[in-house]
Design a protein around this nucleic acid. Structure first.
Length: 214
DNA sequence: ATCCCGAGGG
DNA sequence: CCCTCTGGAT
């Protein structure tokens, strides 16, 4: 029996109980809106993205509309999310790619999604996991930090962590594991001053730093 | 000051 | 692999 699998199951049970409320997600009405929101969300909070997407999607409700937009107009709308020049270019180019190569629809395959500008593995996994309920390991900065502290992985870079976990975490658990661990990384298992003493999974966690504060 | 559900270019 | 892109919240 895989000790790490047992640990993941215990972690999921504990975090489910701790985070009864679903963590806030990017506001969206369809796959197109989530895809664009995810591109905008790099190094930014969901709240900041949600603050601009209402206006953005009112003006450009689909790939065709966004692909035809003026860069300066997009930049003005999304300015407050940060990285606004790169992101404006990326979301317009991604919309154009959807039109040109995918009939205006968001592709379902990760390998297709990551060919879109501004979409890496993390963003692609968010889309397939959330929109289509597919197995998805979403490796962002929090997930990487927490899985390493919990000693769930050997790998240290995001792509290898994703594939390593995909090998043995049951598919139906993967998306939930991703969301719970991400949320836990923000609430307790923070980068600088982790709140190990109050952590709801401190008895499961092997990380030595958990003794700090005693 | 430090962080936020990263990605792409050099 | 490291650097840059970027603004707002705390």
């Amino acid at each position: 029996m895989n000790a790490r699998l047992q640990r993941v199951r215990r972690v999921v049970e504990a975090l489910r109980a701790e985070y009864a409320e679903t963590p806030t997600l990017l506001v969206h009405r369809n796959a197109f809106e989530l895809l664009i929101s995810v591109i905008l969300s790099a190094q930014t909070t969901d709240a900041q993205v949600n603050a601009v997407t209402g206006e953005l999607f009112a003006r450009y409700p689909d790939a065709r509309g966004l692909a035809a937009a003026k860069l300066a107009d997009i930049e003005a709308i999304i300015h407050s999310v940060g990285f606004y020049r790169v992101k404006a270019r990326n979301i317009r180019a991604a919309a154009a790619e959807l039109e040109a190569r995918f009939g205006g629809e968001v592709p379902r395959e990760i390998e297709q999604l990551i060919t879109l500008p501004g979409v890496g593995r993390k963003s692609a996994n968010v889309v397939v996991g959330h929109i289509w309920g597919e197995a998805a390991i979403i490796v962002d900065t929090h997930f990487m930090r927490v899985t390493r502290r919990l000693d769930l992985v050997d790998a240290t870079d995001p792509t290898r962590i994703e594939f390593e976990l995909k090998e043995w975490v049951p598919g139906e658990m993967q998306y939930e594991v991703s969301m719970l661990i991400n949320y836990h990384g923000r609430r307790y298992c923070t980068a600088r001053k982790p709140r190990c003493v109050e952590c709801p999974i401190r008895t499961i966690c092997p990380w030595p730093e958990k003794t700090v504060g005693f």
